[in-house]
Design a binder for these strands. Sequence first.
DNA 1: CAGACACGGTTTAGCGCTATACTTGGTGGT
DNA 2: ACCACCAAGTATAGCGCTAAACCGTGTCTG
Lengths: 345, 345
Amino acid sequence: MRVTLKDIARAAGVSIMTVSNVINGKHERVSAETVERVRRIVAELGYVPNGSARSLAANSSRLIGLLVPAESEVSLTISPHNIAIVGQIERRLRQRGYHLLLRGVSDTAEIGEALRSWSLDGAVLLGFLDEEVDRLHRRVTGATPVLAIDSYSDNPLTTGVRTDDFTGAHLATSHLLSLGHRRIVFAAPSFTDVGVVHERFLGFQAALRDAGASLRDCPTETVNTTHDDGVELGRRLLANHPEATAIFATADILAIGIIEGLHDTGVPVPERVSVVGFDDLDISAYITPKLTTVAQDIVGKATHAVDRLLDLAEGGNHHTEPLVLDVRLVVRNSTAVPRPTARNH
Amino acid sequence: MRVTLKDIARAAGVSIMTVSNVINGKHERVSAETVERVRRIVAELGYVPNGSARSLAANSSRLIGLLVPAESEVSLTISPHNIAIVGQIERRLRQRGYHLLLRGVSDTAEIGEALRSWSLDGAVLLGFLDEEVDRLHRRVTGATPVLAIDSYSDNPLTTGVRTDDFTGAHLATSHLLSLGHRRIVFAAPSFTDVGVVHERFLGFQAALRDAGASLRDCPTETVNTTHDDGVELGRRLLANHPEATAIFATADILAIGIIEGLHDTGVPVPERVSVVGFDDLDISAYITPKLTTVAQDIVGKATHAVDRLLDLAEGGNHHTEPLVLDVRLVVRNSTAVPRPTARNH
DNA sequence: CAGACACGGTTTAGCGCTATACTTGGTGGT
DNA sequence: ACCACCAAGTATAGCGCTAAACCGTGTCTG
């Protein structure tokens, strides 16, 4: 059978509460010898506290939910960039003595169920649109802390951790500008609902302004953030924008598709069109040409997200300002000086 | 405050047990009208059962652990192929009304803690070496069902779900042989401890035999299953094996590295060397040339793994034979007929 | 030398739920 | 008319743990 506090207590000749106190490190109430003795017996008998009983009694579970979008039971839709974050979040939670409940959410109503059913001590929202974050958060009853990653929602309660998207886009765009590009296509999903994308657009715009370039020469292409949409865009890019010499995509996976689409139609990258992405996925260094991109601090994002959430869960201070993580431009081979002959396509 | 069974019972004018029975679908003991009334009140009050209390009382949690290797607190080491499986497992568990606890395991002793702490109803082992599976399983006390994915351990209790590695390797190798290749390098991690790799080697060997090719012409290269090791191998491949015209790597990520390494040294793929991988990662279709590879049934693997585990957890029958999933050869552009001039490099 | 207080505990109550045994009023068979 | 049995419940106990209140000693303080 399972070893319980009672067994330890009997073996150690103390009360069950003393054992409980030892296990929870409340040593002020227990003598050093008793601590020692109880510890030994715990180890001998291989006692493991029962999490359910604990969370029932203490109303706290040391369990954190990681909620990710799931489209109607079909599958989880974690972007390649966010996948890497999942692992890092688990690692950090484990380090801090918590467990991770991974949960796909297809219906906003589900979040309350998820949180309350396990008396989660907190939840991380990963990969949701800003309005979804708001909608989800409204469902959270009680004081369970919730933190959103990469959200631009102005809800102070979900204020979380994000990348410096503005600077990232500025860096990427400035890189293209400094190479001499003036006709740069901005490829992104519809940014009315995605704060991240909007912010990157602002960075793009600012970089153009700072360099004295004309925004009018730089059209926007609205696409989904998928490889296939990238391919499709790459194929028709020069037909739609014959003057363009460069393209900035707000995601590597998109940029990779664009490069493939350009290749399909015989457009050399970077000779004819330079391509810059955003994320620095592993695979971005594996394709040909290797992708110039903006690297995000994945480990930092995950670690700080967990730390902030746990600070909150453990009754600590509440940050009202989002934590903004640094970015880094990674110059590889998908960008070059524009061909002087670019105009006479 | 939180809504409990008691609140529902009071509002419905019945006992707490009746409500419990309604919620758990034990309708034999409750009249239809009562079921209806209780149901309505549950919905009105937004009652959500408390998982902790449930698992404490019923000693079953509807919680399944997904254990993945974690190297000493540094990070999770989920291979690209296995990452896709995680999401599919979550989806299937959710469909069947379970929750997923994701846990990195760096020390085999941890598994008992993980299982017992939350009275997990079962656990899936993903990405462990066979001997680790055995070691982990020995730690599992009690009757908690454990299922390993892609394990060749002969422990009948961990018998799980795997890909038809033999046929996959046979398919890949036969494809190369049918193109005319006779000097094929087998690139894989050390397969003394990895059943999957060993099985793929057997498939490789069998294909050679079936085609009347000589195994002596086909050297084995032992490398880690990483992109970087692939690059390194690709760079020295023809120096070490000047006669080789093809290489079969037991993982796409490795194959992708190999292609890059070959390119680095000016060896054209597939003109001079054909490359075949195994897994069919998304990215394998994004690189240049697009990788010929063996596709695994990820959805099937995840779905059947969950179904088998839950069958067991719910007291169902125990399968002693592992479930073997079909593979499919995906021919793309990294393989071609060997150059007749291959010998006079 | 009484009272305050620290030390090292113990006792009690209860978290929200489920399993099990018990109850009660009707039905049917003989 | 009597017992057996069924449908539709209720009452009780307990899962393993923690929070909070309580309880003897001994020691220090005024």
